[in-house]
Amino acid sequence: MKYIAVKELKEGAVIAEDIYKGTSLVVRKGHVVTAALIRKLQQWEINSLPIQSDEEEKIEEKNIDLKKLSEEKRQTLLTFLQDMLQLGNEYRFGYAINDVDSYLWVQKLFVEITSEKSTYRLLQQLKDWDLNTYHHSLDVFILGSLIAKKIGLEHVSEFSRSCLLHDIGKLRVEKKILTKSSELSSREMLQMRAHTGEGYHLLKQKGHGSFVTDILKYHHQPLSALSGEEEIQKQTRQKELDLLRLVDVYSALTLERPYRQSLSAPKALKIVIQEHTEINIEYMKAFCEMLEIFPQHAVVQLSNNTIAEVVEVDDKLPTYPIMKEKDKLHAFYMPVDRSIIISKVLRFKE
């Protein structure tokens, strides 16, 4: 490890330690330096950083050679990395992309999926049509891919493609509906709800397989609304649909929308648990463990094998909740040095 002045930083270097501004974590250990990050560091008046000198060769081997990409796809990737830096801040992603391997894995997965011409063109059309929907789709792709990898889901690449394109049917929804800041009319709501079917038919026309198209078709539909044959089709993709539903709702709640402000991660997690009874609770536990952000009243096991409850979470420090161990009188903050961490969610209390 060596300290390097921010003005001398080069893209591709790896941060060796967590970086704080006051009490707020602003850059996580293992984060890859980008031009956007350098500008942020200068704005924060951070003058030097610890860099992992022994990781440079590792990064060079695992990173993508931008020279091998066309100029158009190179710009798409660079924009994606900038978007990921903004979307994946600690307040929403916690520790989900806390290491260089996860960061590079998501980056390579994005390049792999968008190398298919149909997927790439559809994504660019969505970006031009509605930027909020595009950013939400990227967000669901990143979070969905990471949680799929964590739980060992089969066919991660195809599931990730489904996440990236899950709202592609909104290309058939009028812009004024997507950007409306007030309540939708009955007619507008019908058009909005039709985006799942529109996406299904659009991807069918583009030659996408049933794995992706079925997920698009059913990702908002309850079993009670389906015919017998449709119910069987949906059940064959139940794991993927359960995961997509979870990250879709979390992303929608924590990103700003035309009709409302974004919610903090702890509040969003609480709402998902309390109001979305269709969510798979085991996936919810795994999702919280991946983020290392936990809702109030979650009962957890700590890394020292004690049982504790999350009694309070600061929206600005969501990865450092106030805890209370079972049968103990006094609460405590999770230590900043991470000498104790939450290792497992046991249950969520009402």
Results as ranks from 00 to 15, higher is better:
residue 3 Y to N: 13
residue 5 A to Y: 12
residue 6 V to L: 12
residue 8 E to A: 13
residue 14 V to P: 02
residue 14 V to E: 03
residue 14 V to A: 00
residue 19 I to A: 10
residue 27 V to A: 07
residue 30 G to M: 00
residue 31 H to E: 15
residue 34 T to S: 15
residue 35 A to G: 05
residue 35 A to L: 11
residue 35 A to R: 04
residue 47 N to P: 06
residue 48 S to I: 09
residue 52 Q to W: 10
residue 57 E to P: 01
residue 66 L to R: 05
residue 66 L to S: 08
residue 67 K to M: 13
residue 71 E to Y: 07
residue 72 E to Q: 13
residue 74 R to M: 04
residue 79 T to A: 15
residue 87 L to R: 06
residue 95 Y to V: 02
residue 95 Y to R: 05
residue 97 I to M: 15
residue 100 V to R: 12
residue 105 W to L: 14
residue 109 L to Q: 14
residue 112 E to L: 11
residue 116 E to I: 10
residue 118 S to C: 00
residue 120 Y to V: 01
residue 122 L to D: 04
residue 127 K to I: 00
residue 128 D to R: 15
residue 132 N to E: 13
residue 132 N to V: 09
residue 133 T to N: 13
residue 137 S to R: 08
residue 140 V to I: 15
residue 144 G to M: 14
residue 151 I to W: 04
residue 152 G to K: 07
residue 153 L to Y: 07
residue 155 H to E: 14
residue 156 V to P: 03
residue 157 S to A: 13
residue 162 S to F: 04
residue 162 S to T: 05
residue 165 L to M: 09
residue 167 D to I: 02
residue 168 I to W: 00
residue 170 K to H: 06
residue 187 R to N: 15
residue 188 E to N: 03
residue 194 A to R: 03
residue 194 A to E: 01
residue 195 H to S: 10
residue 197 G to D: 10
residue 198 E to I: 08
residue 205 Q to H: 08
residue 210 S to V: 11
residue 210 S to F: 09
residue 212 V to S: 05
residue 218 Y to D: 09
residue 219 H to N: 12
residue 219 H to A: 13
residue 221 Q to R: 15
residue 222 P to N: 04
residue 223 L to D: 11
residue 223 L to C: 06
residue 223 L to F: 12
residue 228 G to W: 05
residue 228 G to Q: 11
residue 229 E to T: 12
residue 231 E to H: 09
residue 232 I to R: 01
residue 232 I to K: 01
residue 232 I to V: 02
residue 233 Q to Y: 09
residue 234 K to Y: 04
residue 235 Q to V: 07
residue 236 T to R: 14
residue 236 T to D: 12
residue 239 K to G: 05
residue 244 L to H: 02
residue 250 Y to A: 07
residue 253 L to E: 08
residue 259 Y to F: 05
residue 263 L to T: 05
residue 264 S to Y: 00
residue 266 P to Y: 01
residue 267 K to H: 12
residue 268 A to N: 06
residue 269 L to G: 03
residue 271 I to E: 14
residue 271 I to S: 08
residue 271 I to G: 08
residue 283 Y to R: 02
residue 285 K to G: 00
residue 290 M to E: 10
residue 290 M to Y: 06
residue 293 I to H: 00
residue 295 P to Y: 03
residue 296 Q to I: 13
residue 297 H to F: 10
residue 299 V to L: 09
residue 299 V to S: 04
residue 301 Q to Y: 09
residue 302 L to R: 05
residue 302 L to K: 06
residue 304 N to Y: 00
residue 306 T to Q: 14
residue 306 T to E: 15
residue 306 T to I: 10
residue 308 A to V: 10
residue 312 E to I: 07
residue 318 P to L: 01
residue 327 D to Q: 07
residue 330 H to Y: 14
residue 331 A to F: 09
residue 336 V to D: 03
residue 339 S to H: 00
residue 340 I to N: 02
residue 341 I to D: 06
residue 344 K to S: 02
residue 349 K to R: 12
residue 349 K to L: 14
residue 349 K to H: 09
residue 349 K to E: 15
